[in-house]
Simulated scan of single mutants.
Amino acid sequence: MKKWYQHLAGCLLLSPFLLADASAQSKIISLGTGGVTGLYYPAGGAICRLVNENRMEHGIRCAVRSTPGSVSNLQQVDAQQLDLGIAEAGQLHDALQGQGRFAEPLAQLRTLFSLYTEYITVVARKDSGIDSFDDLRGKRINIGPEGSSQRATLQLLMQARGWSLNDFPEVHQLEPAQQAQALCDGRIDATLYVVGHPSGAIKEALRDCDSRLLALASADVSTLSGKNPHYRSEHLNGGYYASGLGEIETAGVRATVISRADLPEQDAYAIVKALFERLPSFRRMHPAFKQLESGAMVEGPLAAPMHPGALRYFREAGLIP
C-alpha cells in the first residue's frame, strides 16, 4: 500500500475518535467537508488528525462531517450547524456578497487559511461526440447535488451561453461517488468536477470509462473570473493521469477553510497552529497536498476576512507582518 494512502486511511478512520480516552470535557469542533470520494473529505480528515494529536494541550476534538460540498458548508457554518467548513473561495466570495446561490450576505464567515487549488475539470465519454464545452448542449449531463460548487459552477457557465436545463435530454444530480460509474455505465455523457489534483475520481473516470478531459475556452475562464475575482486561469497537468497527456486550459480557485467570526479566538489559534506546525506531515497525507507552502496558504486576496485567532498565529509565526 502506498505510504500516502496509509496516512489517509489513518486520517479518515481515526479523526473523529482519535485517542478515545480523552477527557469528557473536550470541546468537539465539527468540520464540514464533501463527499467521501472527493478531496475535501481527506483534507478534513488530515486537519482533524493533526488537531486531535494535540487535544490534551488545547482541549479540542475535531470531528469530520461529510456534506454535499462548498455551498452547503458555507450555509451550515453560517447557521451554526457546523463549526468549520471547507469551501472554494469563489463560493465564499459570493456568500459574503449575498450573490449567486446566496440570497443574503453571510457576513459572519471568516477565513482560517487556504489549501490547494481546485480546477474546473470537465470529463466526457470519448464516444459521446463531445469535443468542447459547447458540445455539451443536447447531451446527458450530471450537474451534481444541490449545495455543491460543482452545480453552481456549471450553472454559471450554462447561463453565460443562454442555456437552461431544458436544453439537455437528461439531467442527473449524482453524488460524487456515483459520477465515474455513471460515465462507465453510459448513463451520462459528461460531468464537471471542481477538485484538486490528482483526484481518485478523475483517475477512475479516465482509466475505467474510456473518458477524457476537456479544456475550457478562454471565454469560459473570462466568464468565471469576470463574475468572481477568485477564479483565475490555470493549466491542469494531465500528466497526473497519463504520461502523454499534456496541459489542459481551465480555471482554478483556492479551497479555503472557514469558520464564523464568533469561533473563540483561542480555538481558531489552536486549529491553525496544529496544522502549520505539522505542515510537513500534512503534505505527506495526500499527493494533492505535496506542493503546499505556508506563505501561499495565508496570502491574499482573501474571499472573507481572516479570523483574529488565525491572524494572531500567523503574526507570531512571521507569516504575516
Rank of each mutant, 00 (worst) to 15 (best):
M158A: 12
Y241H: 07
Y231F: 15
G186Y: 07
S66F: 08
A219P: 03
N73Y: 13
Q91V: 01
C184L: 06
N142K: 14
E175K: 05
L319A: 13
I60E: 00
P169C: 12
Y119H: 10
Y231M: 11
W4L: 02
L216Y: 05
S164E: 10
D134Q: 13
Q76A: 13
S218R: 09
P42Q: 04
A20L: 02
S294E: 11
R278A: 07
H7F: 03
I248W: 05
H307A: 04
C209M: 05
A261H: 11
L109Y: 09
S70I: 11
V123F: 11
P68V: 01
G85T: 10
F289L: 09
V298G: 01
D267C: 06
I320E: 14
A317S: 14
R284P: 00
S26M: 04
I143F: 15
S15T: 07
Q178E: 08
D189E: 10
A9W: 12
L74Q: 09
P308H: 08
L8D: 00
G246Y: 09
I320V: 15
A95T: 03
D189C: 04
G85L: 08
N237V: 12
R207T: 07
L82Q: 02
A152M: 13
E316S: 12
L216W: 06
E175Q: 07
T117G: 03
H93M: 02
R232C: 05
